[in-house]
Simulated scan of single mutants.
Amino acid sequence: MRLGMSITSGYPGLDGTAAVGSLLERGRVASQAGLDHLTLGDQHATGSFSYVQNVPAIGRIMADWPRDKPIGLLLLLPLWNPVIAAEQIGTLAAMSDAPFIVQTGIGSGAGQFDALGADLSSRGRITDASITAMKELFAGKQVTAPDFDIIDASISPRPPQPVEWWIGSGVAPAAIDRAAREGDAWYTSPGLDGDALAVAADSYRSACERHGRTPRIALRRDILVGDDHDATVRLARSVIERGYRGMDTQIIAGGVEHVAERMASFESINVDDIVARTITVDQSTALRSIELLADVRAAIA
């Protein structure tokens, strides 16, 4: 089971310069921790809330990230033109010797859809059409896609290594089927846990069997690792009580041994990758949590 991370991109209360600096510092520490992969999220039109955009940020992080380890980003595809998205990925992937990870999602929130002129009601269909167009562009084909008014498009550079498609979804049958049909991995919702996660994992494996695909599960988990187990649990509890992302028991917090045991428990449903995201804490606490992920990774390897 591999352990990577998705670096927090949102920094409430910080201006743009401080937000970018915080993200890049976390990227450098993640590189030093020897994690297996690294990705950034995707969100748009956040107003005064500083959210660092993933394409320029991941390009800078790649200067510190090992060329032989996978790196990538999330794209809420209904909010992107597929030619633009494919061109950005083609250039980023050319900076790496490892497979480039493209995490996808249909997105949510009327605010960002309205701001980008996207239709929330058609996001599933548009996601499917975008994946198809981008795969053809990566394969060197000339693409015409009426859904996007695209005529005879082609791109260069194209990814020199295979692109790994991690299809994000909840538990809806259509979403799980998309992950099995189009993806190299099912990128699970961070709020999915317990029996619901086990049942959804079984549904995903069944869908993979129908489509003749090999199942692979990448599990997102929000975490906090600390040197003092009890103090770390108390800090995480205070964050949860403030309404952190509407999550509670799904968050993993504590010392290295406890966090490693919790992560290792997901082997029972054949999780292949865990993608850790540090919960909202101050920068020094977040950096120490990322450093300790090196010990967690060693424990579960």
Rank of each mutant, 00 (worst) to 15 (best):
residue 204 Y to W: 04
residue 199 V to P: 00
residue 211 H to T: 03
residue 134 M to S: 06
residue 184 D to V: 09
residue 217 I to L: 14
residue 161 Q to A: 14
residue 142 Q to P: 00
residue 218 A to V: 01
residue 119 D to F: 11
residue 187 Y to D: 05
residue 173 P to Q: 08
residue 163 V to H: 04
residue 211 H to S: 10
residue 146 P to R: 15
residue 174 A to S: 14
residue 148 F to G: 11
residue 209 E to L: 12
residue 202 D to Q: 12
residue 194 G to R: 06
residue 150 I to E: 04
residue 176 I to E: 00
residue 146 P to N: 15
residue 194 G to V: 07
residue 126 I to G: 00
residue 144 T to G: 11
residue 198 A to D: 04
residue 213 R to Y: 08
residue 185 A to T: 03
residue 152 D to T: 06
residue 193 D to S: 13
residue 172 A to C: 01
residue 148 F to R: 10
residue 122 S to V: 08
residue 129 A to L: 13
residue 150 I to H: 03
residue 105 G to I: 03
residue 137 L to N: 05
residue 203 S to L: 10
residue 160 P to K: 06
residue 207 A to T: 01
residue 107 G to R: 07
residue 115 A to N: 00
residue 175 A to G: 15
residue 208 C to L: 11
residue 111 G to C: 01
residue 179 A to W: 06
residue 129 A to E: 11
residue 110 A to C: 00
residue 181 R to K: 13
residue 106 I to A: 12
residue 207 A to V: 10
residue 141 K to F: 05
residue 202 D to P: 02
residue 107 G to F: 07
residue 170 G to D: 00
residue 165 W to M: 11
residue 215 P to S: 05
residue 139 A to R: 10
residue 126 I to D: 11
residue 130 S to W: 07
residue 116 L to A: 02
residue 221 R to P: 02
residue 114 D to H: 09
residue 118 A to L: 09
residue 180 A to H: 09
residue 158 R to K: 11
residue 190 P to R: 12
residue 125 R to M: 13
residue 163 V to R: 06
residue 155 I to S: 01
residue 113 F to S: 08
residue 193 D to I: 12
residue 197 L to M: 06
residue 144 T to Q: 09
residue 157 P to M: 12
residue 105 G to T: 09
residue 188 T to A: 10
residue 169 S to Q: 03
residue 111 G to D: 15
residue 160 P to T: 09
residue 120 L to N: 00
residue 187 Y to T: 03
residue 171 V to D: 02
residue 164 E to K: 15
residue 131 I to Q: 02
residue 191 G to P: 10
residue 213 R to G: 03
residue 153 A to T: 05
residue 133 A to G: 03
residue 107 G to H: 02
residue 151 I to K: 13
residue 219 L to A: 03
residue 159 P to A: 11
residue 138 F to Q: 07
residue 204 Y to V: 03
residue 134 M to H: 08
residue 124 G to W: 09
residue 136 E to H: 13
residue 116 L to Q: 00
residue 147 D to C: 04
residue 190 P to V: 05
residue 120 L to M: 14
residue 173 P to M: 12
residue 216 R to P: 01
residue 204 Y to R: 02
residue 191 G to D: 02
residue 172 A to T: 08
residue 132 T to S: 14
residue 199 V to Q: 12
residue 166 W to T: 01
residue 129 A to F: 09
residue 129 A to V: 08
residue 172 A to Q: 10
residue 201 A to T: 14
residue 184 D to P: 02
residue 156 S to Y: 15
residue 179 A to S: 10
residue 210 R to S: 14
residue 195 D to C: 01
residue 109 G to N: 06
residue 192 L to V: 10
residue 118 A to I: 03
residue 184 D to T: 07
residue 177 D to S: 15
residue 188 T to C: 13
residue 180 A to I: 09
residue 175 A to F: 01
